[in-house]
Design a protein around this nucleic acid. Structure first.
Length: 650
RNA sequence: GCCGCAGUAGCUCAGUGGUAGAGCGCACCCUUGGUAAGGGUGAGGUCGGGAGUUCAAUCCUCCCCUGCGGCACCA
């Protein structure tokens, strides 16, 4: 037998017979390790304890203490155990695939009748039985023909297809969990009993297309979550409850920010409170962009299809545009228009007015552009995914050699704005050239190089999304993480070589000849609607003072204080603070509860006879138990300062 | 758009083949109360829309709309 050398994490290496398994390696180290081992990492790959190692390799043995590996095995085994449970209960159900996902797993099934919530309970019970059987898990590599024949005989057409897709030269690996068998790349535990029986829960059933393709059959997907311990599971379920409490649709109603109704699906009716957030944010963005050298424009909502044909959008996105047909009495022909789904073609029209010089570049053209897109009904979600929205859009017309410096400037602006809005950090994703694309490789090289260099110069690492760029150019995406750890992609910067060409934008360069500018499409918030939704959820409705729609409620404790309440409100309003009086015939407890728990008003000033006599207020901050006393002058000065947007406070 | 589930008062929800209820909210009255719900009275519903079955439909059936959870989509 040939010998191989295995190198351990501590740097020591030892010689073994080729074909040795990690289980045997572990046993050679100590019997306790052999017992605790769950899997290994061999040359960087997560490795089943049963898989033989054929050549020299680095090796690390994992136990339940290694979270990443333990959770992967738990979740993957859960998926298989669930599939097995389903087939034990309903043998006619066809199985497909069941991968690990964040926090858990899913498995897709083909079954005539829908799974019901009661079914989930039954499946969960069966899974626990299977876990308690502690069936051994074994693995084998099969010939392709044998696997295909096996699945054909067992009437598992999806598995036949999966076997067919495994590339030549890659092993076709079968796993047996007791008598139940599944095609799987592994790794898995050594027996089903290693899955914590109280660490998982089946969450929901949903439709999902076979192989993610909307032209193929709809399967039923059962989602589950799984953790190492019952406590971890409980924690996760609590987190979900917390997320539900922050749901912007719920808070939007409670705080009277906006509503939506079926006559205008996917469009927002902003109420006074919500619109205050919106305009405050917009005012802030307007100042920041002006300061950063942008000019602001505004362009038409209803635009003839000719422009969309010229830009190329008609061909590609017609289905997703709101079409407006005008049939004027005196018009010879009916005109067909579209509500603008984006602003860029209109911005090029402004750029094209008059001859532009290289001295005009870079030209940073911003618009709070109101757009309408006929999004598929299933995509709509509160104010986060809508059919009518306003982007904080801008297009930077520049020369190729300005891409890098403009990108750097943009990242600086974006990071400063995110910080002002309470997001200290963000991630950058870089999407490079897709297979189908416009423009020469040489131009792509330059553009990708410029984006990368600018990102690095700005001091950020990026994750690569290979091939995910737009057909017209590479893009950067900026992802925020909110207070409970969820990611939101907001900002973007996309290089575009195509649109200036299609709409014939040009400028006169120093050589006196016409040249084509490059366009950078960029947004920081994305859309106001979505971003406000994110703010609401991230802050759980408790927006920072400057953004809070209702900043201060001045509440009387006894009606004898009503006059002073009005005086305090007037003084605060004069100081630019959004203040209102609450002199209702209610107890102070009631008022405090309503404005705090439901209204999320950051400051309540309570006024009783003592305060009237002393010309003071009792200050209660949202979330604080303690109250303190302040004179009228003090509190006005203090809140005047707090009400300033961050850029004005600097 | 696709799969599944849902739609009853402003909100959260209960309910029945014989045209409806609770709590909160709202209005009015009592109460003037010191920091997260004081008490009473009252108003408020084409039971999402349309068609069908039935003596009778909010309830059963079908179609549509909207929402929710996913999938697909996201210029």
């Amino acid at each position: 037998m040939a010998q191989i050398t295995l190198t351990f994490p501590d740097g020591n290496s030892r010689s073994f017979e080729a074909g040795i398994t990690p289980a045997e390696v572990a046993a050679g180290i100590s019997s306790s390790l052999a017992k605790k081992a769950i899997s290994a990492t061999v040359n960087g790959a997560h490795w089943d304890l049963q898989w033989p190692i054929a050549e020299d390799a680095s090796i690390a043995i994992h136990t339940m203490k290694d979270d990443a590996q333990a959770l992967e095995l738990i979740r993957h085994d859960c998926a298989h155990i669930m599939a097995r449970a389903v087939q034990e209960i309903w043998p006619e159900v066809k199985v497909t695939i069941g991968p690990v996902i964040e926090n858990g797993f899913y498995y897709d099934f083909d079954r005539e009748e829908p799974f019901t919530p009661e079914d989930l309970g039954a499946i969960e019970k069966k899974m626990k039985e299977i876990i308690n059987r502690r069936d051994p898990v074994t693995t084998e590599i099969w010939e392709r023909d044998r696997a295909v024949a096996y699945y054909e005989a067992n009437n598992e057409p999806y598995k036949v297809e999966l076997v067919g897709m495994i590339p030549e030269g890659q092993p076709i690996r079968m796993y047996w969990h007791g008598h139940w068998q599944d095609l799987c790349r592994g790794p898995h535990f050594q027996n089903t009993g290693q899955v914590p029986a109280d660490g998982f829960k089946l969450m929901s059933v949903a439709g999902a297309y076979w192989r993610g393709d909307s032209n193929r059959p709809m399967l039923q997907r059962i989602y589950g979550v799984a953790f190492k311990t019952k406590d971890d599971l409980k924690k996760h379920l609590l987190m979900l409850e917390e997320a539900a409490k922050r749901d912007h649709r719920k808070l939007g109603r409670e705080m009277e920010l906006f509503h939506m109704q079926e006559e205008a699906p996917g469009q927002v009716f902003w109420h006074p409170n919500g619109w205050r957030i919106y305009t405050t944010l917009q005012d802030y963005m307007r100042r920041r962009q002006f300061e950063a050298g942008y000019v602001e424009v505004n362009t038409p909502q209803v635009v003839d299809r000719r422009l969309w044909e010229a830009s190329g959008h008609w061909e590609k996105y017609q289905e997703h545009m709101f079409i407006v047909e005008v049939d004027e009495e005196h018009a010879r022909e009916k005109t067909i228009n579209a509500l603008k789904p984006m602003n860029c073609p209109c911005h090029v029209q402004i750029f094209n007015q008059g001859l532009k010089s290289y001295r005009d570049l870079p030209l940073r053209m911003a618009e709070f552009g109101s757009c309408n897109r006929y999004e598929p009904s299933g995509a709509l979600h509160g104010i986060m995914r809508v059919r009518g929205f306003t982007q904080d859009d801008a297009h930077i017309f520049c020369r190729e050699d300005q891409i890098e410096s403009e990108t750097e400037r943009f990242i600086a602006l974006l990071s400063s704005i995110y910080r002002d809005l309470g997001f200290e950090s963000f991630r950058v994703k870089f999407s490079d050239r897709p297979e189908k694309r416009a423009g020469s490789d040489e131009v792509w090289d330059k553009a990708e190089g410029a984006l990368k260099a600018a990102t690095e110069a700005a001091g950020y690492d990026f994750e690569l999304n290979p091939g995910e760029g737009a057909f017209y150019g590479p893009k950067l995406e900026f992802v925020l993480t909110d207070a409970i750890g969820r990611d939101w992609q907001c900002g973007t910067l996309q290089v575009d070589f195509v649109l200036p060409e299609r709409l014939d934008a040009n400028f006169i360069a120093e050589d006196g000849a016409k040249h084509r500018p490059v366009m950078l499409h960029r947004a920081i918030l994305g859309s106001f609607e979505r971003f406000i939704g994110i703010l609401i959820e991230s802050f759980a409705g408790k927006l920072p003072f400057w953004l809070a729609p209702r900043q201060v409620v001045v509440a009387s404790i006894v009606s004898g204080a009503d006059g002073f309440v009005h005086e305090v409100v007037a003084a605060l309003k004069a100081a630019g603070v959004r203040a209102e009086a609450d002199i209702r015939n209610e107890k102070i407890n009631y008022k405090v509860r309503e404005h705090s728990a439901v209204g999320k008003v950051p400051v309540i000033l309570a006024v009783g006879m003592k305060e009237v006599d002393e010309r003071t207020v009792s200050v209660r901050r949202l979330g604080e138990k303690e109250t303190r006393s302040a004179t009228l002058d003090e509190i006005v000065a203090q809140l005047r300062a707090e009400a300033l947007a961050p850029d004005l406070a600097r």
